[in-house]
Amino acid sequence: MNALARLRPTHLTSTGIVYLVLVLVLVLGAVITAAAGRNFFSTGNISAILTGTSILGFIAIGQTLVILAGSLDLSVPYVASLASLLGGVTMAGQTCNIPLAVITALGVAALIGLVSGLVVAYLHVHGFIATLGMGLILSGYLGTNFKGSAGSAPRDFRLIGALNIGPVPLSTIIMLVCAVLVILLLRRTRVGHHLYAVGGSKDVARLSGVRTQPPIVLAHVLCSVLAGMAGLLLLARLSVGSPTIGTQGGYDLMSIAAVVLGGTVLAGGKGNILGTLGGVAIFAVMDNVMGVMQLNAFLQDVVRGLVIVLAVAVYARRNADLRPARFDRSRAPRHTPAPTTAGSAA
């Protein structure tokens, strides 16, 4: 069956399409940038694009995990803001405080994810509501306790946001390392496979003997931790923690858009991290090109909105069966149960 599928010239995985779209956007971007009299492939510009991928990348990787598990996380911008504030206040400009600050910020983020995950998994609250509520709770806390920017990052910590290795910023490398770790988690570990199973169909997973709660809780914890890392990176860039930095970026909805743009199915169970990275890269290139063109910031939103809908429409229209189903191979020998299913369907 797989060999047959490969023979068809039109067969493309959704990740393939994402990267095809990315190439298209890159070519378009290069042409437009050249028309504006600038070099798209200059070291500075590539570095700028890669920097643009890092923060949304962190959050989108976490969001992919949560969406694969069949949930959503709308609390990420508040987690990022909280992490940047906690990190900044704990560091207070002292280099020796960095480890403590990082542990505090990520620990609190993990705790928030744990609570959301437990609420989703054990209280059967839809992820949309659980994390919307969690976001509101954090927003109230941030609004009450922090009137403006607070804390400060020491110079050593700010280097994370400023250091480049060749044209690649250090922050992007950290993001890519996280991506590799998450890919390994999804492909090589039992809980990763369970995550796909639970996201695809909770009932089938449960009937197959998978405990459905741990993967969901794990996905939420990891998502929150990654959002916390994004917050710390924002702290490194701005050198102060800010209670509104996450909401200003609109990271909740933009990360979901990037994940779906990367070919992951919003209902869960299908998709992968590579596609998400492609989606994030598409956004980064788009932002860069619009920046070069000096497009009005509000018009940029209009373009983003249109691109999200149109791009998702390209592969949403394709039959869901054409998507690379995670368990295609095990489902392939369909002839054995076929007579019974055909009988009961008729």
Binding site: L123, A130, L132, G133, L136, S139, G140
Partner: peptide
């Protein structure tokens, strides 16, 4: 400023 928090708890 606590309005958001209460709203969050309520919907959950």
């Amino acid at each position: 400023t606590w309005r958001d928090t209460v709203q969050g708890v309520i919907i959950i």
